[in-house]
Structure formats: structure tokens, C-alpha cells
Simulated assay, not measured.
Amino acid sequence: MNRRRPPTSVSSEELLATLQRLTARARQEVQLHQARVELAEALQREMLPATLLTRPGLQTAARYTPARSGLDIGGDWYDCFPLPNGTLAFAIGDVQGHDVEAAAFMGQIRIGMRAFAATTSDPGEILSRTNDLLLSVDSTLFATCTFARLDTRTWVLDTARAGHVAGVWATVDGRSGIFEDAGGLPLGIQAGPQYPVTRHRLTAPGAFVLLTDGVVEGPSFPIEEGLDTVVQLVAPRAAAGADELADAVLQAAERTGHEDDAAVLVLRHDAPRAAQRDDR
């Protein structure tokens, strides 16, 4: 007749020692993860431009904020720099994935775009060349981006999109909306996509707002509703300063649940009043 062996008893000292080992291991893993998060956030903020371009009749403002959870960091970015022909370049993007690798990938995109912009000012061509560069480094990451070129002499804004979320516009005379320009695939996915350029003639004072999907999309907050929310926030403030507009747009991120990092880039322009002043 088989008899069951009684279960081996575990002393309280052994149980306590096991719990201590498990707790120490968990604490070490948390500390390692937190260190990677802090490094990613530091890289992210250091790589973003310290100052933004302004011109007579043009105010600019940008905001970046990590996810509310503190985990999804390292993907969103913005940039601005002068082009050789006297126009201004503005870009905003979102790298797939997060953490240190995404922050480093973002840095590669910014450097590549600035290098290509030294030889061409065409937004679509700059996106195309950046796409080729990212494919050549054989990374598993990809990114979305909107690249814009603004001529403050003619107040013409040319934009191209690589799989990126649409932007929002508003004018002081009461008009507003979402500009869903034609676009191409995200950067780093496939060779040879075309990035058509859309021309916007700024005929009245107002604002253009570029943003990332962390501002307008959440688990239970569809992107269409988020964009409509941004329009409602920007439209009554079209005459406000760029900083006030940027702060207002970030309110939309709070409504989405803010589970992704978020970036906002505001171009507040006084066209065509500024152009008229220049003609005098």
C-alpha cells in the first residue's frame, strides 16, 4: 500500500530568505528599467532643439511631455532650422517603439534631415532621402514625420507627410480645420515611396499646429475625436501667442489618457499683415 509522503515543511526562516531574494531581484529589475527610462528621457530632451526660430510676423512654440505612466519615452520629436534659400524648416515625428533605441533612432532622423536640407529645400525630397538613409542602417524601427517649409516673404507653407497624423489650422477670422495632406509611407519601411508636397497659402493671420498621435489618440479615444478636440481648442485662440496655443493643445493629451509621449509644434503667423509691413 502506497503511502503519501507528508509535505516537507518550510521553516519561517527559509520562507523569509526566499521572499527577500525575490524582492531584491524585483527591486533590481525595477531600478534597471527606471534607469533606462531616465536615460531615454534625458537623451530625448537633449536632442530636441533648445531654441526655436522666429521671424517678424512669426511666433513659434513647442512642447514635449513623456507619457503619464513614465514608460513610453523616446519616440516623439520636433525640429526647426533655417534652409539655405532663406526659408524655414519645421519637422515633427514619432518613432515606433520607445526607450533608448527609439531616442537614438530619432537622433539619426534629425541629423539626416538637416544634412539633406543643405542640398535641397523640397520637403518631399528630404523625406525620400531620409527614408533611404534609414533603410541603409538596417534598423527594425520606423518613424512617421511631417516636414514643412515656410517662406516668410511670401507666406507660403509647403508640407509633406510620411504616415504622420494630420495637423490643425485656424485663422483669426473664424475659420479652422484639419489639414490632411496627401502623404506616403512612414520612414524606414520600404524603398521608393513618393512624398507629395501640398502648398498652403497663408492669407490671413492664424496658426498652424503640428502634433504627434500621443496628443490626439488613446486606448478609448479615437484619433478623429482627438483632432476635433484640438480644433476646438485652437480655433478660439487663433489670435493668441504661440506659447498659449501650445499649452492649450497639450490639454488634449490629458483627455486621451496620455499613455504615449506627446509633442506639439505651433507656428503662429501674422500673414498677410507682416507681408504688408515688409512692402512699406
Rank of each mutant, 00 (worst) to 15 (best):
A40Y: 13
W155H: 00
P56E: 06
A17D: 02
G107S: 08
G107R: 05
T203E: 05
D213Y: 07
A148R: 09
D72C: 08
A67G: 10
T203Q: 05
V30M: 13
G107D: 01
G177D: 00
V197C: 12
V95N: 11
L88W: 13
D278V: 08
A263D: 04
R161F: 04
H98Y: 01
G183C: 14
F90K: 04
A242L: 02
V100I: 13
R36G: 08
R68C: 11
R201A: 08
D122N: 14
G192R: 08
D76S: 06
Q44M: 12
Q276D: 09
V37Y: 11
T146N: 10
L83Y: 00
E217A: 07
R277W: 14
A274N: 00
P7V: 10
D158H: 14
E101V: 08
D260S: 02
V30T: 13
Y195G: 07
R201S: 05
T65Y: 05
S136F: 05
I109L: 14
G218Y: 00
R129V: 01
Q44V: 09
R175E: 03
G57Q: 05
G183A: 14
A118K: 11
V231F: 11
Q276Y: 09
G257R: 09
L250A: 07
A26C: 08
G241T: 10
A42F: 02
W169T: 12
G174M: 04
Q194P: 02
G188V: 06
A148E: 11
A148S: 14
A252D: 06
L32N: 07
D94P: 05
W155A: 00
E38L: 04
G163T: 15
A248G: 02
W169G: 01
A162N: 07
G163V: 13
T229H: 14
P236N: 10
V165A: 01
A89P: 07
R27K: 08
A274V: 02
I189K: 06
C145A: 15
L227Y: 03
G183H: 11
R255N: 12
T130V: 13
R153K: 09
P205H: 11
I92G: 02
D261H: 05
F208P: 00
V137A: 00
L52Y: 02
R36M: 13
T146V: 12
H269W: 15
L15Q: 06
E101W: 09
T171D: 10
R161V: 07
L88S: 09
Q34T: 14
A89D: 03
P82N: 00
P6L: 10
R237K: 00
R21H: 14
V30W: 11
L150Q: 07
R36Y: 11
H200C: 09
T154V: 12
E41W: 13
G218Q: 03
A238H: 03
A238P: 04
V234S: 03
M47H: 15
S121E: 02
I126S: 00
F221G: 08
D181P: 05
G188M: 04
A262S: 15
R114S: 01
T256G: 15
A115Y: 09
V264Q: 06
R27D: 07
V172S: 10
V165W: 00
G177W: 03
A103C: 09
R153G: 13
T87P: 06
W169E: 10
P7E: 03
L32T: 06
P236A: 04
R27S: 06
Q190P: 04
D72M: 15
Q34F: 07
A170H: 01
